[in-house]
Design a protein around this nucleic acid. Structure first.
Lengths: 349, 349
DNA sequence: CCCGCATCTGACAACGTTGTCCAGGCTCTA
DNA sequence: TAGAGCCTGGACAACGTTGTCAGATGCGGG
């Protein structure tokens, strides 16, 4: 009895809870260590009889190869890191899933984390992933300075930025056409007779938000409409402040007759505000939302294809790893205007 | 020139793209290997001057500790695995996020994968995670036989099953009160005068689906209503078949006046079908859905707290790792009936 | 002036796996 | 029957890190 206890206390083998190693399997099967390795990896050069004995020992002991040691030896982890803003955001679900599918097709696992839109946390996460020696990184950046990644890139960590470009570093980027999408969405409202159009979006330090704002401005300018500052609300995302911003725009003596919202969360809140209004206010939102077609009126949106963003990024990542991809590039995926009613309402009053 | 080439080709150090190691840092700083290790890990016993020299070398070389080697040596990976059904499903987003937050609080990273409701894929994923020697596993099981995990549990891999119980193995489980929730939801419809109530749910081999069906049956029985087979549609999840099932129930000469839907995806499809109906059909769905309050009528649901499921599971996981949690247990979290209109419609006709 | 002690540093082994290389036994041919 | 060649199996080093332990250095006290 005291024997086992002492053993557990001082023997190194105990650290994984006494997990059997190839050495243990070899001893039990009465073969050499390397022979076990050969069986485990399906390498040729083992007699069926020997293989059977080894397999038996593996099953009996419940042996499972330790990939940490394998990685150390081989230098490839067969895993990629995904850093995004918030796993719980419905926009990132399909994106993650798409990345995962591509990874799976390449035999790699996915390690991921949420930056919560905090640049420090993003960096911390990315570096933790690099310490794990992930083969590649898919990053939805929160910060705008990624020079900290330079040693990693130089060391050969494949990297693709998605949804937003990298800052101050030359890397692969896959984004949606945020500018064009927003411009088209706003132009759509203008085409339906609106001239006083509000814009509610995220902080312009976030690239997508800035691009969408730029699209809004371009559409207004193209139509010769001078956009008033009071029509634009930037940097608000939490529901309370979005609500206040929308209500202020609508309470103006000369109120906006339409609102363009800069992302899915803002759109949802604004829908709630508009539902309380007596007069009809047109709405076009960036990002599609589930059930948007079932609301009264249906919500017209500029939809981006989250899954395509993820898939494209992951595929580029693995092409970097293959060596078939040479220079970093910037890919822009088109957006799609989906008309459902809210964007086609005429100006009221 | 050929020197570097040859070097790159045959030197083992090249495998991580010539990443510097502690040895390289030590050489550059003119100190011993172990001193570098001490600096990197913030261990005491290094003169400020030495530390400065080492830090300088680290920065100059862009050194980043190789966690694979560290893991091999220390036996703990500081990472946990999460296996769920589909990252893209809005139900699992908040759950994953909650698990991630708890992991982060314990300094662990999250590795995750989707089983796509395929037991084989689940097993493959789980075993891959075990090979990485994750410290613990949070599993939303797809299969119903987890005996393959026995060696892992014995070896000390902390494991918690969420959303659905483990099959044929004694492990920690955190689930929602699927039976009670469904029974209450159906009873709610009965209380509003319905007697012919349809049920559309997932395959009964999925535990949650079976429990919800059982809840439906119990509520009907409690009210003394014999449930007809034609009112129950089991094992349909894809939109086309859900739609057909709902339409059939409604086309019956003596049609159902209310429908209870077994999960969020089914609910969404049925909402679409009901929107096309002329007469009002009551609806209560299991799982909450975004914007459910803005539809006409609002959708009454039995809501479960996905984040709480994830948080509870992850916390139990780390308590297992602490050693503060001893015997496996089964935790059941309550559901909440959220009335919004669709469940309070009276029977029409 | 030397000894003892505390402080700082480095040599070495080990973690579990895989790649390299060689030994031994076998078969086949000359 | 001897030699060549093939097939199987195992010994050994290495991957990059950390724990152990002992050596070096410096300082104060006897």
């Amino acid at each position: 009895m005291p024997d086992t206890t002492r053993r557990a206390a001082h023997l190194p083998g105990n650290r994984y809870g006494n997990r059997p190693t190839m050495k243990d399997v070899a001893a039990r099967a009465g073969v050499g260590l390397k022979t076990v390795s050969r069986v485990v990896n399906g390498e040729p050069g083992v007699t069926p009889e020997t293989e059977r004995r080894v397999q038996e020992a593996i099953d009996a002991l419940g042996f499972r190869r330790n990939d940490s040691a394998r990685v150390l030896r081989k230098g490839r982890t067969a895993s990629i890191g995904l850093v995004l803003e918030d796993l719980a955001d419905p926009f990132y679900g399909p994106l993650s899933r798409a990345v995962e599918e591509v990874a799976r097709a390449h035999g790699a696992l996915l390690i991921n984390g949420s930056s919560a839109e905090d640049p420090d946390r993003e960096q911390e996460l990315v570096l933790a992933l690099c310490a794990r020696r992930v083969d590649g990184l898919v990053v939805i950046p929160a910060g705008d300075d990624h020079r900290y990644l330079e040693p990693e890139l130089k060391a050969g960590v494949a990297t693709v930025f998605v949804d937003r470009p990298a800052g101050r570093i030359d890397a692969d980027v896959v984004v949606s056409d945020n500018f064009g999408g927003a411009r088209d969405g706003v132009a759509h409202l203008i085409a339906h007779g609106h001239r006083r159009i509000g814009f509610i979006g995220d902080m312009p330090r976030i690239h997508t938000a800035a691009e969408r704002l730029r699209g809004y401005r371009a559409a207004m300018e193209d139509a010769g409409i001078p956009a008033k500052d009071s029509w634009m609300s930037l940097g608000v995302t939490d529901p309370v402040r979005v609500r206040r911003a929308a209500e202020e725009m609508l309470a103006d003596p000369n109120p906006v007759t339409a609102i363009f919202t800069g992302n899915n969360r803002v759109t949802v809140t604004v829908i709630r505000v508009l539902a309380e209004q007596t007069r009809g206010v047109a709405l076009v939102g960036f990002d599609d939302i589930e059930l948007a077609d079932l609301l009264q009126p249906g919500v017209t949106v500029v939809a981006q294809d989250a899954a395509a963003l993820g898939r494209t990024a992951a595929e580029r990542l693995f092409r970097q790893l293959d060596g078939t991809l040479l220079a970093p590039d910037r890919i822009e995926l088109p957006t799609r205007l989906v008309t459902r009613g809210s964007g086609e309402l005429p100006p009221s009053q």
